[in-house]
């Protein structure tokens, strides 16, 4: 086998279906086949309620599909235990949500250090140094010593991105990461995403409603009623 596969898929969905059980079962996504390659910047678009978030939770191993399966860097995940999935989320995936979801009791630095501390393998000094480095890289050098409630909305969202990057994941999954930001800050976040793709070879899947931002990605996947209608 060759050591490097240029066409390797970092995330792959195989006939993914998620149905919420109940007296009236709700189909969130149906029969989705999808592959995200390395260094790909993908936008997921679609009307509200079309299943964009649901798809992202499945790709991010937060939710389990009713049928089909998700592969992360070629590894099948259907048979993994909950704690194995947690381990994959910790080391291979990074999440950014519409709300920053930073822990209010912890400072900026502590929030970014948290996933590294869980992962282990680095000593406290290395963890701190890496957290500082990521934050500086995202233009947050003034925020290192601050509490999260001392930051602006745009800064908080960038800290959330920094936290997603903590364990150096190859995949970032973002659900309307700019939904709460003004145009300027939204632009900054997308610039950062672009840089992560181009300079660091990460793959980014971002759900967005904003056609202008979607236009800045490499590939657009359009969902309607839980199905992919355009790719």
């Amino acid at each position: 086998m060759p050591a490097e596969l240029p066409t390797e898929l970092v995330v792959e969905a195989r006939s993914l279906t998620r149905i919420l059980p109940g007296t009236v079962p709700v189909t969130l996504v149906r029969d989705i086949d999808l592959g995200i390659g390395a260094s790909e910047f993908v936008a997921i678009t679609g009307p509200s309620g079309s299943g964009k978030s649901s798809l992202l939770y499945l790709l991010g191993l937060l939710d389990r599909p009713t049928e089909g399966e998700v592969l992360i860097e070629g590894q099948a995940t259907g048979d993994l235990s909950d704690s194995d999935l947690a381990e994959l989320r910790l080391t291979k995936l990074g999440f950014v949500f519409q709300f920053h979801f930073l822990l209010p009791e912890f400072g900026v630095l502590q929030n970014v250090m948290l996933p590294m501390r869980k992962a282990g393998g680095r000593d406290a000094r290395e963890i701190r140094a890496r957290a500082e480095q990521i934050l500086i890289q995202l233009g947050l050098e003034d925020c290192l010593g601050k509490m999260t409630n001392q930051l602006s909305g745009g800064q908080r969202q960038r800290v959330a991105v920094a936290r997603a990057l903590a364990n150096d994941p190859r995949i970032i999954l973002a659900d309307e990461p700019t939904g709460n930001l003004d145009t300027k800050n939204a632009g900054i976040v997308f610039d950062i995403f672009r840089r992560l793709v181009v300079e660091e070879g990460r793959s980014i899947v971002a759900v967005t409603h904003d056609p202008d931002l979607a236009a800045r990605t490499d590939r657009r996947i359009h969902l309607v009623d839980g199905r992919v209608v355009a790719d």
């Binding site: 704690s83 381990e87 979801f101 936290r163």
Partner: peptide, 16 residues
């Protein structure tokens, strides 16, 4: 609950 959810999404297990 939000913090718990986010901790889980970050990779903390239910045991954690």
């Amino acid at each position: 609950t939000r913090d718990i959810a986010i901790l889980k999404s970050l990779g903390l297990t239910h045991r954690d």
